[in-house]
């Protein structure tokens, strides 16, 4: 399995994802944080490609990187006059956060020992056509409820940011 390019790509993308994730957390400027998130999500898409999940990688780029990040950037622009750069918290709040997050990571890290141990599978199989069929068959309820959810979210978001209607009295 030595020198498998997919593995090298995976590790590269994984390290970059983590690096950008750290940038997201520590960046003072919100626009920088969002940009770092963009790269973190892009690198995750790279991991998906390395794992053979082409379709997922594409979805990740189109929906997450293209949609969510642009959305968040708009959010940042619209609220920018209020808070441009975000102050750091004091040590008293920093320490508990570190302890909680550290404990979570430590616990999960050690849980990894109980996972089924398998080496990287070179099984590459295109599942995209099957996925398309499944969304119309097995997962049709989830698919339809997801569209209900999106319609509801659309209505809700439009309602919340709409200008207030003057009462006619």
């Amino acid at each position: 399995m030595k020198g498998n390019p997919a593995i090298i790509v995976f590790w590269l993308c994984a390290m970059l994802t983590l690096l950008f994730a750290v940038c997201v957390i520590v960046a003072r400027d919100l626009v920088r944080a969002v940009t770092a998130l963009l790269f973190a999500l892009l690198m995750t898409a790279g991991m998906y490609f390395a794992l053979g999940a082409d379709f997922l990688g594409a979805v990740q780029i189109v929906l997450y990187v293209g949609g969510v990040v642009v959305l968040v950037l708009f959010g940042v622009m619209l609220t920018r006059d209020v808070e441009m750069t975000v102050p750091y918290l004091g040590f008293g709040q920093f320490l508990p956060a570190l302890i909680v997050a550290g404990a979570v990571t430590w616990g999960l890290w050690h849980l990894a020992d109980f996972l089924p141990r398998k080496a990287f599978p070179p099984v590459h199989r295109s599942v995209t056509p099957i996925l398309g069929e499944l969304f119309m068959k097995k997962y049709i309820v989830a698919f339809e409820v997801a569209s209900v959810l999106l319609v509801g979210v659309l209505i809700g978001a439009a309602y919340l940011v709409r200008r207030e209607v003057r009462r006619e009295e």
Binding site: Y139, A142, L149, V153, G156, L160, E164
Partner: peptide, 23 residues
């Protein structure tokens, strides 16, 4: 889990909007 997650998210996400309904 797929159907469950999508359905539960529908309930809670529309709940977030309803919570802010009176502005």
């Amino acid at each position: 889990f797929i159907t469950m997650v999508v359905a539960v998210e529908t309930v809670s996400m529309l709940g977030y909007v309803l919570a802010g309904f009176t502005r």
